[in-house]
Design a protein around this nucleic acid. Structure first.
Ligand code: MN
Ligand code: MN
Ligand code: MN
Ligand code: MN
Lengths: 217, 217
DNA sequence: ATATAGTTTTAGACAAGTCTAAAAATAAAA
DNA sequence: TTTTATTTTTAGACTTGTCTAAAACTATAT
């Protein structure tokens, strides 16, 4: 069993590791978790003793295979809860992170199994990030930007890049949501703006906006 | 803000207080929370300093008005989550307590407001216990036992007294669930057994079974 | 190559929550 | 009303996770 703090460190490590080839510095961890480097060192040493982190003094830290599994499981829970909050409780995409940060630490296999079923086994969270499966396997997301789609291509919205409230409200006007099917009817050569079809209706969208929307197709 | 441990003590105090006129002993608290009396004393003293508990050495503890509000709020969350687990995730009535024990400490007003709406503002949890409202007010439950109903009376199932798995499975056969409308068609003078109508069908139920089911009418 | 700057680790302290063992207070029995 | 038993509180210790300050190490610059 891992404590809430341990789980948060493992998760941070998982994310930081994917952003750089070599070991994660205690500085980087401290920055991410808003603690001090000395605290990070302490925790990394403890996690190393528990065999979930590989660590050599001054050389940075890596997750072991076991550590990766635990981290992926926490991330799985985080993202499933985010889907729940948006899909079922009608939260906005940018309101859910802090609550999921708490919910991800609830301990119950059965709960997550059932939640996953209840949500219909989603593959992406409301920010377009992939949800690891029960075995910690992450489907590499083939997500691209809506702006990359050409005429007559279509995709399913899986998230947004930046998600401030004003922008989300704008998307609501275009009836764009997670899972929305978006078809590109026309691309304006001049400025890259598009005419799209969502839910039977057609809308106009600027290139800048289209560069902020993730789709899979 | 109150910590997880503080919230658990407040909740225990709330329940214990309703079971005896005078102050709650540190012994009783320790027993309920599976800690030691010395730990309970420490915590009660801290809660007294925070003005949520009224406490005099050797005289037992009471919740203050403020303390009662916080306790009721934790209980509200616990019971709402229990409803969610049973109604939405299809857990059995006896599987939800431990998970709710964790979920009750998630901090977000908005979350609970929305959860309450999502669940259609339930008044009772799956064990028939009333759910405090946003202001900590508990509708005194007029719940009675199914065995107390007379011929042609009806009630809505709000919970069960003892909830072991086997019994719940038996109730499933009678299609009795939280919210089920149960009408008493006939009472057998001889042994108190009843013929009841649930969801259009009629079933036979022994007095012993009927003494285990809570209804309101 | 040596000095300087930046990073990382250690040492020691602290708050929260718990425990054991002992002291103090209360309750029950003689 | 003493003595004895039980309950409750205190004292001191321990764990987890954090912090500051100082020491040790690494990287950079002259
Ligand atoms: Mn978290
Ligand atoms: Mn997310
Ligand atoms: Mn419960
Ligand atoms: Mn609890």
């Amino acid at each position: 069993m891992f404590t809430l703090a341990e789980e948060n460190y493992l998760k941070a490590l998982f994310h930081l590791e994917s952003e750089s080839k070599d070991g994660v510095s205690t500085n980087a961890i401290a920055l991410k978790l808003k603690t001090k480097p000395s605290s990070a060192t302490d925790m990394i040493q403890k996690l190393a003793e528990k065999k979930v982190v590989a660590y050599q003094k001054y050389k940075g830290a890596f997750l072991t295979k076991k550590g990766k599994l635990i981290a992926a499981d926490v991330i799985r829970k985080h993202r499933l809860w985010e889907v729940f909050l948006v899909e079922k409780l009608n939260f906005q995409w940018d309101e859910v992170h802090d609550i999921a940060e708490q919910l991800e630490h609830i301990k119950s296999e059965e709960l997550i199994t059932r939640l996953d079923t209840f949500l219909d086994h989603p593959n992406f969270d409301p920010h377009g990030d992939p949800i690891p499966d029960e075995n910690g396997v992450i489907k590499s997301s083939d997500k691209k930007l809506l702006s990359e789609l050409e005429e007559n291509q279509q995709g399913i919205c899986v998230g947004v890049k930046q998600s401030d409230s004003k922008y989300l409200q704008y998307l609501d006007k275009l009836s764009i949501n997670i899972g929305s099917k978006i078809k590109v009817l026309n691309v304006e050569e001049f400025d890259g703006s598009k005419t799209i079809e969502v839910g039977g209706k057609s809308y106009f969208i600027s290139e800048k906006s289209a560069q902020n929307i993730y789709v899979i197709n």
